[in-house]
């Protein structure tokens, strides 16, 4: 018989899948930013298709992430609130903080080179899209780094 997942486990799974969703979303936005760097043509069309695929993938990942928790909620099984504090929730919060720090430092660095960047003549949308992708990718990578497998933990089971 399949064992029912506890609320805490479901929320942990949600965090992991949200991180994957953010990674795909970040890559999608990087591709959309790259589209603006190339002239309309074959490369541009390819980037368009690839960014469409990653966009669909990130949407599917989001649905896959939310579904187990939604299922518990629909089935009224999310009665007892799980303890809000967990290792993965903590790692996710830390990842958002790390992402903010890295983005803040990168933006500061970019501002120092603003004069050179003005010469590139890129539209404002390029920087906004790139920045959004950068924040999503750094947050997800930070999460994967913070939650990387530790063999010692499994030995304790």
């Amino acid at each position: 018989m399949k064992k029912t997942m506890s609320c805490a486990e479901a929320i942990d799974h949600l965090n992991g899948k949200v991180a994957w969703g953010m990674l795909f979303m970040g890559v999608t936005y990087f591709l959309r930013a790259a589209e603006q760097l190339v002239e309309p043509g074959a490369v541009n069309s390819t980037l368009d298709i690839v960014s469409g695929i990653t966009m669909v993938t990130s949407m599917l990942l989001t649905f896959w992430a939310i579904w187990p928790v939604a299922k518990l909620k629909i089935g009224n099984k999310l009665i007892n609130q799980p303890e809000g504090d967990s290792f993965l929730t903590d790692a996710m919060n830390m990842s958002f903080k790390n992402s903010w720090i890295i983005t803040f430092m990168t933006t500061t660095l970019c501002l120092a080179f603003q004069k050179f960047m003005d010469d590139w003549g890129l539209p404002v949308s390029f920087y906004l899209i790139f920045l959004f992708g950068f924040m999503a990718v750094t947050a997800s990578l930070s999460f994967f780094y913070l939650t990387k497998k530790d063999d010692l933990e499994d030995l304790e089971e």
Partner: peptide, 8 residues
């Protein structure tokens, strides 16, 4: 009411 990962 926590996950196994949290305990480990």
């Amino acid at each position: 009411g926590v996950s196994r990962k949290t305990i480990s």
